[in-house]
């Protein structure tokens, strides 16, 4: 049986700091995630009605459904209308919308109001899909459930 020499704790003490540092790095990562990332995002989006009422300047996210028939392509993106059932807002988007962007799709547009709050200038669109799953053939009653392509 190997006998541990008297100096055995020395390498353990060297290793100790590696794990203390690793644990502290994890605490740092958590602080970064909560303070840097989550602050201001805990309410991830505004509904169209809220956004119209608040009329905030600065960046915000606007959520609603794409009004069927309102999509038209522009040189550098698309324009469309988004509604939450009560309010409807025109969105001017620069860039390519995601694959699932379509009429009736639930979207989150990120950007800011233009001067005079006439239209929402968006530079990022996310699809805010729900937790409902069904195969393609039983979804005909839901216009938002059609495959976009």
């Amino acid at each position: 049986m190997a006998v541990i020499p008297e100096s055995a704790p020395a390498p353990a003490r060297g290793r100790r700091w590696i794990y203390v540092v690793a644990a502290l790095l994890c605490v740092g990562a958590i602080a970064f995630l909560l303070l840097g990332g989550l602050r201001g995002n805990i309410v991830y989006f505004r509904t169209v009605s809220e956004a119209v009422q608040e009329n905030d300047t600065g960046r915000l996210r606007l959520a609603g459904e794409v009004v069927p028939g309102s999509i038209s392509e522009t040189d550098d993106g698309v324009t469309f209308e988004v509604t939450d059932g009560n309010e409807t807002v025109a969105v001017v988007h620069r860039g390519d919308p995601p694959d699932l962007f379509a009429e009736g799709a639930p979207v989150v547009a990120e950007g800011e109001w233009d001067d005079g709050f006439a239209a929402f200038q968006s530079d990022r669109i996310l699809i805010n899909h729900g937790n409902e799953y069904s195969p393609p053939d039983v979804s005909s009653e839901d216009p938002s459930a059609e495959h976009p392509s």
């Binding site: 100790r16 690793a22 644990a23 995630l33 989550l38 694959d99 699809i127």
Partner: peptide
């Protein structure tokens, strides 16, 4: 969604969960 990552509450709290227990495993080795 059209994004690899978004800063919403579910994703951030899950990432926090990862680092909480990674830190726990590091602490076990001190």
């Amino acid at each position: 969604w059209g994004a690899w990552w978004v800063w919403d509450a579910r994703l951030v709290t899950t990432a926090v969960l990862f680092f909480l227990y990674l830190g726990y495993l590091a602490l076990r080795r001190v």
